[in-house]
């Protein structure tokens, strides 16, 4: 093989390699979500009520405690599970009881759920019960929304701000 042919061969090799690098660096395109869908993202961190309310200790109970651990109140650290429900156009698409986090069950419960839904007009109802009741929800929010293709609708929950927050 002549030197010229070898140089041409090298140039072709480099061209093929860098074209391969350039191409696979951004192609083929990956379709992450179909064009006719939108996403509802329900996510929050919230601690349910304590399993047992704080209670004043009686004088006898305080006396029974070791001197270094004597305190006026006793509080259970464990929290109640949370029930969350998401209703889309009268259909319940999520209804779950979330256990509190932490080894002792004393941390907030976490939710991070995604739902792909058709685009268009929807009525959303989202509810949360954090006091252990089974016949009602402590928080409830409703939203009528026109979801665009590939829109992401995050729903957060913050009790100190009155409940559910929709980010539009």
């Amino acid at each position: 093989m002549t030197d010229l042919l070898r140089y041409v061969g090298q140039a072709v090799f480099y061209a093929v390699v860098v074209l391969g690098i350039g191409y696979f660096s951004q192609r083929p395109i990956y379709e992450h979500i179909p064009p006719d869908k939108a996403q509802i993202l329900l996510s929050f961190s919230h601690g349910g009520a304590r399993v047992e309310a704080c209670r004043r200790l009686s004088a006898e109970e305080i006396a029974r405690l070791p001197p270094g651990q004597r305190r006026p109140n006793t509080c259970s650290r464990r929290r109640l599970p949370i029930r969350v429900q998401l209703v889309l156009d009268e259909t319940v698409i999520f209804d779950q009881v979330l256990e509190p986090g932490g080894l002792a069950g004393d941390s907030p419960a976490h939710a991070y759920e995604k739902f792909l839904v058709p685009t268009g007009r929807h009525r959303l109802l989202v509810r949360l019960e954090d006091r252990g009741r089974t016949d009602r929800f402590a928080y409830e929010s409703e939203l009528v929304v026109d979801l665009r293709p590939r829109q992401n609708l995050p729903i957060d929950f913050k009790a100190d701000k009155g409940g559910f927050i929709f980010y539009l």
Binding site: F24, Q26, I29, H32, N152, P154, Y167
Partner: peptide, 20 residues
């Protein structure tokens, strides 16, 4: 834009082939 789901993505297939 966190209020929009990234739709058609030009993945770097050298680094991200397992992401899907």
């Amino acid at each position: 834009d966190l209020l929009e789901v990234p739709a058609d993505i030009g993945l770097d297939w050298f680094y991200l082939p397992l992401y899907p």
